[in-house]
Write a protein that binds this DNA or RNA. Structure first.
Lengths: 125, 125
DNA sequence: TACCGATATGCATAAATAAACATATCGCTA
DNA sequence: TAGCGATATGTTTATTTATGCATATCGGTA
């Protein structure tokens, strides 16, 4: 419990990112899009979700287009015009994708956190 | 086993990155530096490790400096000059850091892979 | 002591990524 | 039918990050 590392270990923060690509290494789904899709599902609006996450609408629009391009069918159901200007919802497939990613994260998050704690404790020895 | 997702799922590749930062969000240790440190340990040379990983010496040198700056003590033992031009080895602390990161990855890699496979299978349903 | 190959480091350039800006379209509502 | 707010999308500008280039130092060996 008294190594050279000791006094710095409490300042260390863990980060990780999980994503998936097509064979051409183009990112098609990952933590960022997952979060965005979840928030769109919740808010019913791309713009609202972008505002909350601090992403630009332009960027998000392009990113989401990539997923749909890869799968070849829509994950989002968009509607323009109307009293509220328009809205966006997830299709059934969109929801399935998000739920599957939810489960993925649920399975690994605690493992990674636990591994990190062991890492820190190992350095404290 | 026959969803809209089915025919694309075999093309999906998993990626993930784990790293750590200081309180200021400056990256101090992660998969890239881990790999590099391991290879330096194996090769006894920064240059040789850079060549093998395809990183520029310039970049690597700067990156490794960040870790040492954060911890405040050397993880690398460098030597300039000599018949072979010089060489680099890990200090005891450097080795401890690498071993701890080895264990971290050993603990999470299979979990993540397994989670990914479940993710794919879930979408196949 | 001149040379070689690796470490050391500043600086300028390029490539990748994101942000900003600019419009256009759409369809309800006043 | 004029206006509003969100979706749609091209273009330009910034920011970030990596690469490239240049040069210096070091210390065995020929």
């Amino acid at each position: 419990m008294e190594t050279k590392f000791s006094d710095k270990l409490s300042d260390i923060r863990l980060h990780y990112k999980i994503w998936m690509s097509d064979a051409n290494e183009t990112g098609i789904m990952g933590d960022g899009k997952w979060q965005m899709l979840k928030l769109i599902e919740e808010k019913g609006s791309m713009k609202a979700a972008c505002d909350e996450l601090g992403y630009t609408y332009r960027r998000t629009w392009g990113n989401l287009k990539k997923i749909e391009k890869f799968f070849g069918f829509p994950l989002l159901e968009k509607q323009r015009g109307g009293s509220d200007g328009g809205h966006t919802a997830l299709t059934e497939e969109g929801k399935r994708l998000v739920r599957a990613f939810d489960a993925f994260h649920k399975a690994v998050d605690s493992q990674i956190q636990e591994g990190f704690e062991k890492f820190i404790n190992e350095l404290k020895k």
